[in-house]
């Protein structure tokens, strides 16, 4: 399972396609780098919500 920002979604999909994989992808807003703790909290929450969806299948 991959957590990627929306900006990098095409990269993940292109790489997965070349490897004949169907990635489980959790997309969060871009960017992640350079955020302070408060800003990063939103990304963590989004990633966790995405993970819960994946866990439910």
């Amino acid at each position: 399972m991959v957590i990627a920002t929306e900006t990098f979604r095409p990269l993940v999909l292109a790489q997965a396609k070349a490897r004949k994989l169907e990635p489980h992808l959790i997309v969060v807003k871009h960017p992640v780098g350079g955020l302070n703790a408060e800003e990063l909290k939103e990304r963590i929450d989004a990633a966790f919500e995405g993970l819960k969806v994946e866990m439910k299948g």
Partner: peptide, 19 residues
């Protein structure tokens, strides 16, 4: 190893502990 990747993942683990 990109900036904040560790914080993001550990933050997810913290929240995972609730379930």
């Amino acid at each position: 190893n990109k900036p904040n990747a560790k914080e993001l993942l550990l933050g997810v683990r913290d929240r995972l502990s609730s379930i």
